[in-house]
Simulated assay, not measured.
Amino acid sequence: MLTTSSRLLRLLTLLQGRRDWSGRGLSEALSVDVRTIRRDIDRLRELGYRIDASAGQGGGYRLGAGPNLPPVLLSDSEAVTVMLALRAAANSMAGMDASIASLIAKLENLLPTRLQPQLRAVNAVAHVLPAPGALAEIEALALIATACRDRRRLRMRYSDRQQRETRREVEPLQLILAGRRWYLIAWDRRREDWRSFRIDRISEPELLPTQFEPRMLPEPPAAFIAKAMASAPSRYSLRLRLAARYDDLVDSVPGWCGLLEPLDDESCTLRVGAETLPGLATALLFIGHEFELIDDPPWRAELEALLANVARPIAAPARRDHA
Protein backbone atom coordinates (compact mmCIF):
# COMPACT_ATOMS: atom_id res chain seq x y z
CA MET A 1 0.00 0.00 0.00
CA LEU A 2 1.28 3.49 -0.85
CA THR A 3 2.24 5.90 1.90
CA THR A 4 0.22 9.11 2.17
CA SER A 5 2.90 11.25 0.49
CA SER A 6 3.38 8.73 -2.34
CA ARG A 7 -0.36 8.47 -2.79
CA LEU A 8 -0.68 12.28 -3.01
CA LEU A 9 1.99 12.41 -5.72
CA ARG A 10 0.26 9.61 -7.61
CA LEU A 11 -3.10 11.38 -7.25
CA LEU A 12 -1.62 14.61 -8.61
CA THR A 13 -0.15 12.73 -11.56
CA LEU A 14 -3.57 11.27 -12.38
CA LEU A 15 -5.26 14.67 -12.19
CA GLN A 16 -2.62 16.21 -14.47
CA GLY A 17 -2.91 13.41 -17.01
CA ARG A 18 -6.67 13.63 -17.62
CA ARG A 19 -9.12 16.52 -17.60
CA ASP A 20 -11.90 14.91 -15.54
CA TRP A 21 -11.92 12.12 -12.97
CA SER A 22 -14.78 10.63 -11.00
CA GLY A 23 -14.24 9.95 -7.33
CA ARG A 24 -14.82 6.26 -7.96
CA GLY A 25 -12.32 6.23 -10.83
CA LEU A 26 -9.61 7.77 -8.64
CA SER A 27 -10.35 5.38 -5.79
CA GLU A 28 -10.02 2.38 -8.12
CA ALA A 29 -6.80 3.72 -9.65
CA LEU A 30 -5.23 4.20 -6.19
CA SER A 31 -6.87 1.17 -4.51
CA VAL A 32 -8.41 3.25 -1.73
CA ASP A 33 -11.97 4.19 -0.82
CA VAL A 34 -13.74 7.34 -1.96
CA ARG A 35 -13.50 8.88 1.52
CA THR A 36 -9.70 8.68 1.36
CA ILE A 37 -9.77 10.37 -2.04
CA ARG A 38 -11.76 13.27 -0.55
CA ARG A 39 -9.22 13.69 2.26
CA ASP A 40 -6.31 13.59 -0.20
CA ILE A 41 -8.00 16.17 -2.40
CA ASP A 42 -8.30 18.46 0.63
CA ARG A 43 -4.59 17.98 1.39
CA LEU A 44 -3.66 18.97 -2.17
CA ARG A 45 -5.83 22.07 -1.87
CA GLU A 46 -4.02 23.01 1.33
CA LEU A 47 -0.75 22.76 -0.64
CA GLY A 48 -2.04 25.37 -3.10
CA TYR A 49 -3.50 23.24 -5.88
CA ARG A 50 -6.85 24.35 -7.23
CA ILE A 51 -9.02 21.27 -7.64
CA ASP A 52 -12.61 21.79 -8.76
CA ALA A 53 -15.27 19.34 -7.61
CA SER A 54 -18.65 18.53 -9.14
CA ALA A 55 -21.68 17.12 -7.40
CA GLY A 56 -23.30 13.80 -8.26
CA GLN A 57 -22.91 10.14 -7.54
CA GLY A 58 -19.30 9.53 -6.59
CA GLY A 59 -18.38 13.17 -7.28
CA GLY A 60 -16.02 14.44 -9.95
CA TYR A 61 -12.67 16.25 -9.85
CA ARG A 62 -10.68 18.44 -12.20
CA LEU A 63 -7.33 20.15 -11.72
CA GLY A 64 -8.03 23.83 -12.28
CA ALA A 65 -5.81 26.71 -13.30
CA GLY A 66 -4.40 28.69 -10.39
CA PRO A 67 -2.45 31.95 -10.11
CA ASN A 68 0.88 30.08 -10.09
CA LEU A 69 2.30 27.32 -12.23
CA PRO A 70 2.10 24.11 -10.15
CA PRO A 71 4.80 21.45 -10.26
CA VAL A 72 4.32 19.02 -13.13
CA LEU A 73 4.98 15.37 -12.39
CA LEU A 74 6.56 13.39 -15.21
CA SER A 75 7.30 9.71 -15.61
CA ASP A 76 10.84 8.68 -16.61
CA SER A 77 9.92 8.27 -20.28
CA GLU A 78 7.97 11.56 -20.30
CA ALA A 79 10.95 13.46 -18.87
CA VAL A 80 13.35 12.15 -21.53
CA THR A 81 10.73 12.81 -24.25
CA VAL A 82 10.35 16.44 -23.12
CA MET A 83 14.12 16.97 -23.28
CA LEU A 84 14.32 15.59 -26.83
CA ALA A 85 11.24 17.55 -27.95
CA LEU A 86 12.74 20.80 -26.64
CA ARG A 87 15.90 20.29 -28.66
CA ALA A 88 13.88 19.58 -31.80
CA ALA A 89 11.53 22.55 -31.20
CA ALA A 90 14.44 24.98 -31.19
CA ASN A 91 14.95 24.18 -34.87
CA SER A 92 11.42 25.10 -35.95
CA MET A 93 11.08 28.51 -34.25
CA ALA A 94 13.35 31.51 -33.91
CA GLY A 95 13.93 33.47 -30.72
CA MET A 96 13.67 30.45 -28.42
CA ASP A 97 17.33 29.53 -27.94
CA ALA A 98 17.77 31.26 -24.58
CA SER A 99 14.44 30.06 -23.18
CA ILE A 100 14.97 26.47 -24.29
CA ALA A 101 18.55 26.40 -22.98
CA SER A 102 17.34 27.70 -19.61
CA LEU A 103 14.48 25.19 -19.47
CA ILE A 104 16.74 22.27 -20.42
CA ALA A 105 19.21 23.27 -17.69
CA LYS A 106 16.41 23.36 -15.10
CA LEU A 107 15.08 19.96 -16.17
CA GLU A 108 18.56 18.42 -16.13
CA ASN A 109 19.00 19.54 -12.53
CA LEU A 110 15.64 18.06 -11.56
CA LEU A 111 15.98 14.71 -13.31
CA PRO A 112 16.52 11.69 -11.05
CA THR A 113 20.06 10.35 -10.91
CA ARG A 114 18.98 7.13 -12.64
CA LEU A 115 18.01 9.12 -15.77
CA GLN A 116 21.22 11.13 -16.05
CA PRO A 117 23.15 8.40 -17.97
CA GLN A 118 20.30 8.10 -20.52
CA LEU A 119 20.20 11.83 -21.06
CA ARG A 120 23.98 12.14 -21.37
CA ALA A 121 23.99 9.32 -23.92
CA VAL A 122 21.32 11.02 -26.02
CA ASN A 123 23.04 14.42 -25.82
CA ALA A 124 26.34 12.86 -26.89
CA VAL A 125 25.06 11.31 -30.12
CA ALA A 126 21.84 13.16 -31.06
CA HIS A 127 22.17 16.37 -33.07
CA VAL A 128 19.50 18.42 -34.83
CA LEU A 129 20.62 19.87 -38.16
CA PRO A 130 19.91 23.58 -38.54
CA ALA A 131 16.89 24.32 -40.71
CA PRO A 132 17.60 26.19 -43.97
CA GLY A 133 16.11 29.63 -44.39
CA ALA A 134 14.20 31.80 -41.98
CA LEU A 135 12.25 30.41 -39.03
CA ALA A 136 9.01 31.57 -37.47
CA GLU A 137 9.41 33.96 -34.53
CA ILE A 138 7.89 32.61 -31.33
CA GLU A 139 6.24 35.97 -30.52
CA ALA A 140 4.46 36.06 -33.88
CA LEU A 141 3.49 32.41 -33.60
CA ALA A 142 1.98 32.94 -30.13
CA LEU A 143 0.00 36.02 -31.25
CA ILE A 144 -1.37 34.25 -34.34
CA ALA A 145 -2.29 31.20 -32.25
CA THR A 146 -4.25 33.50 -29.92
CA ALA A 147 -6.09 34.98 -32.91
CA CYS A 148 -7.02 31.47 -34.10
CA ARG A 149 -8.26 30.41 -30.67
CA ASP A 150 -10.22 33.60 -29.93
CA ARG A 151 -11.63 33.97 -33.48
CA ARG A 152 -10.25 37.48 -33.87
CA ARG A 153 -9.27 39.12 -37.12
CA LEU A 154 -5.59 39.59 -37.85
CA ARG A 155 -3.89 42.42 -39.73
CA MET A 156 -0.38 41.79 -41.03
CA ARG A 157 2.22 42.38 -43.72
CA TYR A 158 3.11 39.42 -45.92
CA SER A 159 6.05 38.93 -48.28
CA ASP A 160 5.78 36.40 -51.11
CA ARG A 161 8.68 34.41 -52.56
CA GLN A 162 9.64 37.41 -54.78
CA GLN A 163 9.80 39.59 -51.63
CA ARG A 164 6.74 41.56 -52.72
CA GLU A 165 4.99 42.84 -49.62
CA THR A 166 1.23 43.26 -49.25
CA ARG A 167 -1.05 44.30 -46.41
CA ARG A 168 -3.55 41.60 -45.42
CA GLU A 169 -6.54 41.35 -43.11
CA VAL A 170 -7.51 37.74 -42.47
CA GLU A 171 -9.72 35.49 -40.39
CA PRO A 172 -7.19 32.95 -39.02
CA LEU A 173 -8.31 29.34 -38.75
CA GLN A 174 -5.39 27.05 -37.90
CA LEU A 175 -1.62 26.71 -37.64
CA ILE A 176 0.11 23.80 -39.37
CA LEU A 177 3.69 22.61 -38.89
CA ALA A 178 4.91 21.01 -42.14
CA GLY A 179 8.46 19.74 -41.88
CA ARG A 180 10.22 22.60 -40.11
CA ARG A 181 7.99 25.41 -41.35
CA TRP A 182 4.87 26.86 -39.75
CA TYR A 183 1.90 27.82 -41.92
CA LEU A 184 -1.30 29.73 -41.21
CA ILE A 185 -4.58 28.81 -42.90
CA ALA A 186 -6.83 31.86 -43.04
CA TRP A 187 -9.70 33.46 -44.94
CA ASP A 188 -8.33 36.48 -46.83
CA ARG A 189 -11.01 39.15 -46.58
CA ARG A 190 -9.84 41.20 -49.58
CA ARG A 191 -9.45 38.20 -51.90
CA GLU A 192 -12.50 36.47 -50.44
CA ASP A 193 -10.87 33.07 -50.49
CA TRP A 194 -8.82 30.69 -48.37
CA ARG A 195 -5.07 31.28 -48.33
CA SER A 196 -2.01 29.74 -46.69
CA PHE A 197 0.75 31.94 -45.26
CA ARG A 198 4.25 31.02 -44.18
CA ILE A 199 4.69 32.38 -40.66
CA ASP A 200 8.32 33.38 -41.26
CA ARG A 201 7.11 35.71 -44.06
CA ILE A 202 4.59 37.48 -41.81
CA SER A 203 5.62 40.78 -40.21
CA GLU A 204 3.88 43.26 -37.92
CA PRO A 205 0.97 40.95 -36.98
CA GLU A 206 -1.76 42.89 -35.18
CA LEU A 207 -4.61 41.34 -33.24
CA LEU A 208 -7.83 43.21 -34.04
CA PRO A 209 -10.75 43.49 -31.60
CA THR A 210 -13.26 42.29 -34.20
CA GLN A 211 -14.35 38.68 -33.78
CA PHE A 212 -15.70 36.49 -36.57
CA GLU A 213 -17.75 33.34 -37.07
CA PRO A 214 -15.41 30.63 -38.42
CA ARG A 215 -16.00 29.55 -42.01
CA MET A 216 -15.91 25.93 -43.13
CA LEU A 217 -12.64 24.92 -44.78
CA PRO A 218 -13.55 22.78 -47.84
CA GLU A 219 -11.05 20.03 -46.97
CA PRO A 220 -8.94 18.83 -44.02
CA PRO A 221 -6.27 21.40 -43.01
CA ALA A 222 -3.35 19.03 -43.69
CA ALA A 223 -4.62 18.32 -47.21
CA PHE A 224 -5.13 22.04 -47.85
CA ILE A 225 -1.54 22.86 -46.87
CA ALA A 226 -0.15 19.94 -48.89
CA LYS A 227 -1.95 21.21 -52.00
CA ALA A 228 -0.84 24.78 -51.36
CA MET A 229 2.79 23.69 -51.00
CA ALA A 230 2.65 21.55 -54.13
CA SER A 231 0.95 24.20 -56.26
CA ALA A 232 3.25 27.03 -55.17
CA PRO A 233 5.53 28.25 -58.01
CA SER A 234 8.91 26.49 -57.94
CA ARG A 235 12.08 27.04 -59.91
CA TYR A 236 12.22 23.33 -60.71
CA SER A 237 9.03 21.31 -61.14
CA LEU A 238 8.07 17.97 -62.65
CA ARG A 239 4.95 15.97 -63.37
CA LEU A 240 5.30 12.24 -62.77
CA ARG A 241 3.13 9.23 -63.54
CA LEU A 242 2.86 6.50 -60.91
CA ALA A 243 1.41 3.16 -62.01
CA ALA A 244 -0.87 2.55 -59.03
CA ARG A 245 -4.33 3.51 -57.86
CA TYR A 246 -4.79 6.72 -55.89
CA ASP A 247 -6.18 4.88 -52.85
CA ASP A 248 -3.05 2.70 -52.74
CA LEU A 249 -0.68 5.68 -52.86
CA VAL A 250 -2.28 8.47 -50.88
CA ASP A 251 -1.17 7.13 -47.50
CA SER A 252 2.35 6.13 -48.55
CA VAL A 253 3.57 9.08 -50.63
CA PRO A 254 4.62 11.89 -48.23
CA GLY A 255 2.36 14.89 -48.60
CA TRP A 256 5.29 17.32 -48.75
CA CYS A 257 6.68 15.51 -51.84
CA GLY A 258 4.01 17.01 -54.06
CA LEU A 259 0.40 17.05 -55.18
CA LEU A 260 -0.93 13.54 -55.87
CA GLU A 261 -4.00 13.29 -58.11
CA PRO A 262 -5.77 10.33 -59.78
CA LEU A 263 -5.11 10.10 -63.52
CA ASP A 264 -7.28 7.07 -64.32
CA ASP A 265 -8.38 3.87 -62.59
CA GLU A 266 -4.85 2.43 -62.58
CA SER A 267 -2.48 5.41 -62.25
CA CYS A 268 -1.86 8.81 -60.67
CA THR A 269 0.04 11.99 -61.39
CA LEU A 270 2.38 13.59 -58.86
CA ARG A 271 3.47 17.21 -59.27
CA VAL A 272 6.82 17.79 -57.55
CA GLY A 273 8.60 21.11 -57.15
CA ALA A 274 11.64 22.61 -55.41
CA GLU A 275 13.83 25.69 -55.50
CA THR A 276 17.00 23.66 -56.13
CA LEU A 277 17.82 20.52 -58.10
CA PRO A 278 19.16 18.75 -54.97
CA GLY A 279 15.85 19.57 -53.28
CA LEU A 280 13.92 18.12 -56.21
CA ALA A 281 16.13 15.01 -56.22
CA THR A 282 15.47 14.55 -52.50
CA ALA A 283 11.71 14.67 -53.08
CA LEU A 284 12.00 12.07 -55.85
CA LEU A 285 13.94 9.72 -53.56
CA PHE A 286 11.25 10.00 -50.87
CA ILE A 287 8.36 9.05 -53.17
CA GLY A 288 9.00 5.35 -52.51
CA HIS A 289 7.35 4.09 -55.73
CA GLU A 290 8.41 3.64 -59.34
CA PHE A 291 7.46 6.52 -61.64
CA GLU A 292 7.98 7.88 -65.13
CA LEU A 293 8.39 11.48 -66.24
CA ILE A 294 5.53 13.19 -68.04
CA ASP A 295 7.51 16.39 -68.59
CA ASP A 296 10.87 16.71 -70.37
CA PRO A 297 12.48 19.79 -68.76
CA PRO A 298 15.63 21.44 -70.18
CA TRP A 299 17.58 20.61 -67.01
CA ARG A 300 16.78 16.88 -67.16
CA ALA A 301 20.42 15.93 -67.84
CA GLU A 302 21.57 17.84 -64.75
CA LEU A 303 19.01 15.99 -62.63
CA GLU A 304 20.08 12.63 -64.09
CA ALA A 305 23.72 13.39 -63.30
CA LEU A 306 22.83 14.39 -59.75
CA LEU A 307 20.92 11.16 -59.11
CA ALA A 308 23.65 9.12 -60.83
CA ASN A 309 26.18 10.47 -58.34
CA VAL A 310 24.10 8.78 -55.66
CA ALA A 311 23.32 5.56 -57.54
CA ARG A 312 26.83 4.91 -58.85
CA PRO A 313 28.64 4.26 -55.54
CA ILE A 314 25.68 2.28 -54.20
CA ALA A 315 25.63 0.00 -57.25
CA ALA A 316 29.41 -0.54 -57.16
CA PRO A 317 30.81 -3.48 -55.13
CA ALA A 318 31.72 -2.52 -51.61
CA ARG A 319 35.44 -2.00 -51.08
CA ARG A 320 36.83 -4.09 -48.28
CA ASP A 321 39.72 -2.75 -46.25
CA HIS A 322 42.38 -5.34 -45.56
CA ALA A 323 44.43 -5.28 -42.43
Rank of each mutant, 00 (worst) to 15 (best):
N68I: 08
F286T: 15
E266M: 08
I144Q: 02
F286N: 14
A283H: 08
R50K: 13
G60I: 02
Y158H: 06
R181I: 03
E139Q: 14
P172F: 01
L284Y: 04
L30A: 05
E219Q: 14
E206C: 09
V72M: 13
V72K: 06
N109V: 02
L175P: 03
P67F: 11
L129T: 10
V122H: 09
R43S: 12
R19F: 04
A134I: 06
R149G: 12
S196D: 14
D52L: 04
A243V: 09
A85H: 07
R157W: 05
L249S: 06
Y158F: 06
L69N: 15
I100Q: 03
T146H: 14
N109M: 07
T4D: 09
E78Y: 05
M83N: 06
F224L: 07
T4G: 04
V272F: 05
R45L: 06
S203L: 01
R320P: 00
Q118E: 15
L47M: 13
V250Y: 05
R195S: 12
A274T: 08
A89D: 04
E292R: 06
K227E: 15
D33N: 12
G64W: 00
P117L: 07
P254Q: 01
L129P: 09
D42P: 13
A98Q: 12
R7V: 03
L9R: 07
Q57K: 12
A311Y: 05
I104F: 03
T276V: 02
A124D: 13
S92L: 07
T146C: 09
M229E: 12
W194F: 10
V128F: 12
R7F: 05
I287G: 13
G279P: 13
R241V: 13
L154W: 01
W187R: 05
L154G: 02
A308S: 14
A147E: 04
R149Y: 14
L306V: 12
M93Y: 06
R24M: 07
I287Y: 11
R319W: 09
P67K: 11
S22Q: 05
T3H: 04
A244Q: 07
R271P: 01
L47P: 00
R201V: 04
Q116V: 15
A274C: 03
R198M: 10
L84S: 12
L135V: 11
L119M: 14
F212Y: 11
S54Y: 01
L249W: 02
R151D: 11
G95W: 01
D33V: 01
P278Q: 09
A134N: 09
A88N: 10
R319Q: 14
P67D: 15
P298E: 01
S75D: 11
L184D: 10
R19N: 12
R271C: 10
T282G: 15
I104H: 08
A126Q: 08
R155Y: 08
R24I: 05
N109S: 14
A315R: 09
E46A: 14
